[in-house]
Structure formats: structure tokens, C-alpha cells
């Protein structure tokens, strides 16, 4: 057993008995997290495929309906998520150098960004709800609000808009919970996070994935080119 202890002491990580060394343990964690993220890619992938199909079918109407979205709010949210991704990457760096104070500071900043994102999204949704732009029997019939787009096709656009940005927002909420749990463990000096930075890195992987989804949602919904 002495050999195991020396091994562990050298790496400073909490090596579990089923792993040969800390390398293998960390690799297992990372591969496990990525296999989850691959299922997430498939989850969002179906929605991206549906979006592509309908936008291709109704390119003019989608362009007209998209003019109602607020590009300034969308751009602000993109900047907020990019900034939060940067602070998450820094949190992983500080976890590697075991600087608890800065880990907590950067994670707090990431959570603040996540909340700011949701607040702005909330204002955007409120605007759409006010104009009856959610799909369903009560859908808006005012041609000006739809920017002269065909009502049925505009409804498809808004179904995709709420479906995709809504699912993304759910992921942001889950991210807040997971980062919150990680911060709790750091604050409590839990060995599972302080001894091994990979716990922080895995939460980081999730948060960066949420950012990647938005990187694609932003140009697809807010920056449609005028058909020409």
C-alpha cells in the first residue's frame, strides 16, 4: 500500500483504487463527460436539422419573421456567454494551481453572467408573448408584427425559436445549478474538488458546450441574411 500512497502524494490527486494512475483516472472522467456531451450534440442536432429543413423551405418568410427579433439583445447575450466561458476557463486554471479564492471568484462571475443571460432572454420572451408570437391557436394575426410573413410559416419560425432557445435556456439553468454545487464543494473544502481539478474541468466542459450551442443559435436566429 505504501506504493499507492507515494503515487498519490506525487500527483496530489485523489486516486481511486480502480485506476492504474491519475492519468487514467482523469482520462476516464473526461471521456465520460464527452460521451454525455455527444448525446447532447445529438439532442440539439435534431432541432438544428429541423431548423435547416424549414428555413430552406420557407426562406423568405423566415427572413421576414426574424426581423422582429432584437439583434442588440441577442448580441449582448452572445458577449455575456463568451465572457462567462472565459471566466469558466480561468476557474479551471485556478483549480489546477489550487487557488480557492480565485476559483470561487471566477465561478461566481460565471454564475452572474448566466443570470444576466436569462434576464435578457426573459425580456425578449416577454416582448414576444406580449405580441402573441408564441405558436398555438392564439397566434398573432397582425401582418405588421409578422413583417408581412405568411402566418403559418412565421408560426413555424417562432416554434423553432422558442423550442431551440428555450432548450438552451434550460441548459443555462442546469449550468447555474451545477456551477452552484461546485462552488458549494469548493467553499466546503471538499477533497473531491480541491485535490483534483478534473471535477471543475468537467463542469467547465458542460458550460463551454452550452456556449457552443449559443454560438450557432445566434447567427441562425438573429443574423439571417436578406434573401438576394
Amino acid at each position: 500500500m505504501a506504493a499507492v500512497d507515494t503515487h498519490e502524494a506525487h500527483h496530489g490527486g485523489a486516486l481511486h483504487h480502480q485506476f492504474e494512475d491519475i492519468e487514467q483516472q482523469n482520462d476516464t472522467y473526461i471521456v465520460g463527460m464527452w460521451s454525455f456531451l455527444v448525446t447532447e450534440v445529438m439532442f440539439f442536432g435534431a432541432l438544428f436539422l429541423m431548423y435547416t429543413l424549414y428555413r430552406w423551405s420557407y426562406i423568405e418568410d423566415f427572413y421576414l419573421a426574424h426581423e422582429h427579433l432584437n439583434v442588440v439583445m441577442g448580441s449582448t447575450n452572445t458577449m455575456i456567454l463568451l465572457t462567462s466561458s472565459f471566466s469558466m476557463a480561468m476557474a479551471v486554471h485556478f483549480a489546477q494551481v489550487k487557488n480557492k479564492k480565485l476559483v470561487l471568484a471566477t465561478l461566481s462571475f460565471t454564475v452572474v453572467c448566466a443570470f444576466a443571460f436569462l434576464v435578457i432572454k426573459g425580456f425578449e420572451y416577454a416582448e414576444k408573448f406580449k405580441d402573441h408570437l408564441y405558436p398555438g391557436v392564439g397566434f398573432n394575426t397582425n401582418a405588421d408584427t409578422l413583417h408581412q410573413a405568411n402566418m403559418n410559416h412565421a408560426q413555424l419560425f417562432y416554434a423553432l425559436y422558442f423550442g431551440m432557445t428555450g432548450l438552451h435556456a434550460v441548459h443555462v439553468i442546469v449550468g447555474i445549478i451545477v456551477i452552484g454545487a461546485l462552488m458549494f464543494l469548493w467553499a466546503r473544502n471538499a477533497r473531491s474538488v480541491t485535490e483534483d481539478y478534473v471535477s471543475t474541468e468537467m463542469v467547465g466542459l458542460y458550460w463551454h458546450f452550452v456556449d457552443i450551442v449559443w454560438i450557432f443559435l445566434f447567427p441562425l436566429f438573429y443574423l439571417m441574411p436578406k434573401p438576394h
Binding site: 473526461i30 450534440v41 445529438m42
Partner: peptide, 13 residues
């Protein structure tokens, strides 16, 4: 191995 997972995920997409 992790790189393979990333590649497989996004190429299947």
C-alpha cells in the same frame, strides 16, 4: 480517446 469521442460526436451530427 477523448479526441475520438469529440470527433465522432460532431461528425455524426
Amino acid at each position: 480517446l477523448a479526441k475520438l469521442y469529440v470527433l465522432a460526436g460532431f461528425s455524426t451530427f
